[in-house]
């Protein structure tokens, strides 16, 4: 099955450039603008491997994501989803293979890659002793955002936290922290958003708010999301991969029904279940 995964995910002519019909129709307004961009994938991963010491945690993973695409990574704990995202985010260095993000090689020059990506994980990456505004101002300065105050005000409005801008993050609920984390990740207007189980630890109301926000920005970015959630994972994706044991065991262009995908997942994965 790994071979099938590679065959489907390796080349831009597979799922990346031919997103599922459902996803395509949701973004119909963007189609003419994106038609030319689809030829050059926003993310290109070839033969990616990562070892910690002698332990291989990722082996020969390949996929491409077209500009404006949404790839969801599924897999049990330890499958290599987070490692893949951390490699794309330049937080880890690959042991083998090559990664290109927004046209920049990850090994050669990571700085442009860092400018091109926003990273959202279950950890909000916010300073608890600073206010919402101070956190965003800090990251705006770190990314060299122009007209930072206006951008911060816009984003706080968008994530519905304007009224809490001068409160320290330690007083925020988990859901509010996650919304502020989205604002943090969007500050520098990244082309690619990497999401590592962003729904983890959120209550149903916060999950709905987060999904609404992701839906709002769906058309503006290229996404790669790791999740265990069938609904969230399939809902926005136009491309899915299942990882197990550090390898791609299944790849599809998206548009699968939840029941069909759940059955495929159970057949492909040695242990673990979707929620």
């Amino acid at each position: 099955m790994a071979g099938a995964g590679r065959a489907a995910g390796n080349h831009g002519g597979g799922p990346a450039s031919e997103p599922a019909g459902g996803a395509r129709s949701e973004r119909a307004g963007d189609a003419p603008e994106r038609a030319g961009d689809a030829a050059a994938p926003e993310i290109c991963v070839e033969g990616l491997g990562k070892a910690f010491g002698r332990r291989d945690v990722l082996r020969d993973v390949s996929f491409t994501v077209a500009r404006g695409g949404f790839l969801t990574l599924f897999g049990p704990n330890g499958a290599g989803k987070t490692t893949t995202l951390r490699l794309l985010a330049t937080l880890l260095k690959p042991s083998s293979g090559s990664v290109t993000v927004a046209g920049h090689d990850l090994r050669g020059d990571p700085a442009p890659v860092r400018r091109a990506i926003g990273f959202i994980s279950h950890d909000p990456l916010l300073y608890r002793d600073l206010t919402a505004h101070e956190n965003l101002r800090f990251y705006a300065d770190m990314y060299g955002v122009a007209d930072a105050e206006r951008r911060i005000a816009d984003l706080l409005e968008r994530v519905e936290l304007s009224h809490r801008r001068h409160d320290v993050v330690a007083t925020f609920s988990k859901g509010m922290q996650q919304r502020l984390a989205i604002a943090r990740a969007l500050l520098h207007e990244p082309r690619v958003l990497l999401l590592d189980e962003p729904h983890s630890g959120l209550d149903p109301h916060a999950v709905d708010l987060l999904d609404g926000l992701l839906g709002d920005i769906r058309a503006e970015h290229t996404f790669v999301m790791a999740t265990h959630s069938l609904r969230q994972g399939l809902g926005l994706a136009d491309q899915v991969l299942i990882l197990d044991g550090g390898k791609v065991v299944f790849a599809h262009g998206g548009g699968m029904a939840e029941a069909e995908f759940a059955a495929t997942y159970r057949a492909q994965v040695r242990e673990g279940a979707l929620v």
Binding site: R114, F119, P124, L126, D129, Y139
Partner: peptide, 17 residues
Amino acid sequence: AHEKDDGCLDGLLLCPV
């Protein structure tokens, strides 16, 4: 301590700095 305790080291390392 703040980078480690608040999990912000990744946030710092993600910046193009």
